[in-house]
Amino acid sequence: MPSETPQAEVGPTGCPHRSGPHSAKGSLEKGSPEDKEAKEPLWIRPDAPSRCTWQLGRPASESPHHHTAPAKSPKILPDILKKIGDTPMVRINKIGKKFGLKCELLAKCEFFNAGGSVKDRISLRMIEDAERDGTLKPGDTIIEPTSGNTGIGLALAAAVRGYRCIIVMPEKMSSEKVDVLRALGAEIVRTPTNARFDSPESHVGVAWRLKNEIPNSHILDQYRNASNPLAHYDTTADEILQQCDGKLDMLVASVGTGGTITGIARKLKEKCPGCRIIGVDPEGSILAEPEELNQTEQTTYEVEGIGYDFIPTVLDRTVVDKWFKSNDEEAFTFARMLIAQEGLLCGGSAGSTVAVAVKAAQELQEGQRCVVILPDSVRNYMTKFLSDRWMLQKGFLKEEDLTEKKPWWWHLRVQELGLSAPLTVLPTITCGHTIEILREKGFDQAPVVDEAGVILGMVTLGNMLSSLLAGKVQPSDQVGKVIYKQFKQIRLTDTLGRLSHILEMDHFALVV
């Protein structure tokens, strides 16, 4: 994948999101292997301009796509893939009243899908469409860049269908997702969380590099694949309309690839034109409109599966009536509230959605109805927002919020430890010299600072030695090549209790 991002070429006709291997024109390309080798690009942008032909009021008969309808489940399912879809609609009884809503608040519980998330729908649909058009064949390999849930859905379907599955996901995604993927037989590649989507090191860039190296491999490409919004247009939206008897006044959905909100909203605009569509985008993402909503100094966020630093091709923002931004604290607070007060075992993005819903639905009156999409299960986040310690460490809970008995030293300040200034190293000294210094002084790690004293990161003896043994660096290389740029900081005025929580999850903390 090139470091400079080429513009994806656009073909003359058809839909841009065809499933299957992508040609340089962004659509299915038939021909000899030699032709494909000559024409197939190194990668295709996940934010390529959409060429979708959908228009409100256009006859369904003019759609270029294969459409399906929700099917009634048999008493005995032939395999677990038949437990994807037909998820329950559940009334939220307490939270709406707590925040003064007059309307009825309903939750579409997508964590009841077989793999635990709304992404099971698009995973199965992308595979079925690729099999139907002859792209996927027995023994082929599926590769997908994902925040985890699409990966789980694909790995689940691949396990049943017999495909090899490789999932490329950023490091910030939970260990629970990784464990589930491994249990399903998927191979996992992790990428830096802070890598831009168009960087060769991003999950998108690495996935395309693997595709170019592995024979008979395919990126189904949830960011561009029409099967993504079509899955929701054909099934999720129809289920909502049936469950609500066609009567709903507002739908609120958090947005990642945009397939969920695009597919549902398009069908609702056709069948229930008075329904307002509300999009939820986390602070630090750029999906919301108008652009002024996205202006923030924050560039990272903890909530998973929603928000991006690019506009995915499948996201149709014209069908969203209003956007709201959400933050991590309210997302996790509301997710825990949904679990504790409503018994809905949902993930953090569901918290984002409901946090926005109780604001947006203030305009609705008694007798009206708001539906929220709860995308995934708490299963993926047992060591994250479900953990009091994690919430404390991230600053989303305060010590006084917890009532468990603490040891005698818990409320003492870090400054009472009488710490001395640490050994520091410059980023320009060599790895070999740094190892000598650390061994001589008896230290395992040291902060790396520039000549102005600005902290650049941390270097550890173990990481340097393993990097040297693996051949990633040489003793003569500058130590700046092996620094940890993500590390926890703590102030002298913070409590030892807070430091204790940090050290339970990290090997060190830097006192500043």
Rank of each mutant, 00 (worst) to 15 (best):
87 T>Q: 02
32 S>V: 08
25 K>R: 09
205 G>V: 07
128 E>M: 13
112 F>S: 02
183 A>L: 04
244 C>L: 05
71 A>I: 13
16 P>T: 08
230 L>C: 13
267 K>R: 09
216 N>C: 12
222 Q>V: 07
234 D>S: 08
203 H>L: 05
129 D>F: 04
175 S>P: 05
194 N>L: 08
81 L>E: 15
200 P>A: 08
256 G>C: 02
26 G>A: 02
39 K>H: 02
135 T>W: 15
79 D>M: 15
186 A>C: 02
63 S>W: 02
2 P>C: 15
190 R>G: 04
19 S>Q: 12
58 R>G: 06
76 I>A: 08
42 L>W: 06
66 H>Y: 12
98 K>W: 10
270 E>H: 10
197 F>M: 08
39 K>I: 06
73 S>H: 14
174 S>L: 05
255 V>F: 02
264 I>Y: 04
215 P>C: 02
212 N>F: 09
155 A>I: 02
109 C>L: 02
127 I>L: 09
240 I>C: 02
266 R>S: 02
254 S>F: 05
241 L>G: 08
272 C>K: 04
17 H>W: 14
99 F>C: 11
213 E>W: 04
231 A>P: 12
263 G>D: 02
33 P>A: 04
75 K>G: 14
233 Y>L: 04
160 V>Q: 14
82 K>T: 02
196 R>Y: 09
167 I>L: 10
27 S>D: 15
140 D>F: 09
18 R>S: 15
157 A>T: 11
28 L>A: 08
183 A>H: 10
207 A>R: 02
106 L>V: 10
82 K>N: 13
22 H>P: 02
251 L>F: 07
272 C>R: 10
138 P>Y: 13
15 C>N: 02
55 Q>L: 06
199 S>C: 10
108 K>C: 02
223 Y>F: 08
112 F>A: 07
251 L>R: 02
110 E>Y: 13
158 A>I: 06
46 P>N: 04
169 M>L: 11
51 R>V: 02
10 V>P: 08
242 Q>I: 14
102 K>A: 11
59 P>V: 02
157 A>K: 06
247 K>Q: 13
107 A>Y: 04
173 M>C: 10
31 G>K: 15
103 C>S: 02
100 G>R: 02
115 G>V: 06
59 P>A: 06
267 K>W: 07
239 E>G: 14
5 T>V: 02
266 R>Y: 07
